[in-house]
Amino acid sequence: MRALVIDDSRAMRRIVSGILIGLGYEVRDAGHGREGLDVLDEGWKPHLLCVDWNMPVMDGLQFVSAVRSNPAWRSVTIMMVTSESEHTQIVRALAAGAHEYVIKPFTADAIRDKLALLGLLPEEVPAGVPVPLRSSEQEVAL
């Protein structure tokens, strides 16, 4: 599985990428929507886009609209990962074509739960096994 993480904060890109890598993803990242489109234009085909909202140059909502208007990228799953958490904003993002929405702050579990909902967990944890509740990144934190 491949994911593209788009966030203007380097720290946040590292955190989200770290969680996804821990789950078995191959990850690339970009600092704003325009850079994200450039990565897609190269022909790299991610299964998942994790997109922040407020970014310079091109914000997350513009990016989502751009991706949704290109039939070549129709199959990609879009998950907003942002501190924008007004009810109306979430509705707007879903209407623009995002599938899921993770509100910052989030834990590694939140990302994993959402990917499970989307059927995008690379290694499905077998039923019946108590799930390790943290990604490897956070194992020390209980």
Partner: peptide
Amino acid sequence: ANVVGGNVKA
């Protein structure tokens, strides 16, 4: 600040 601010805004 962005995370705290976004949630204050909401």
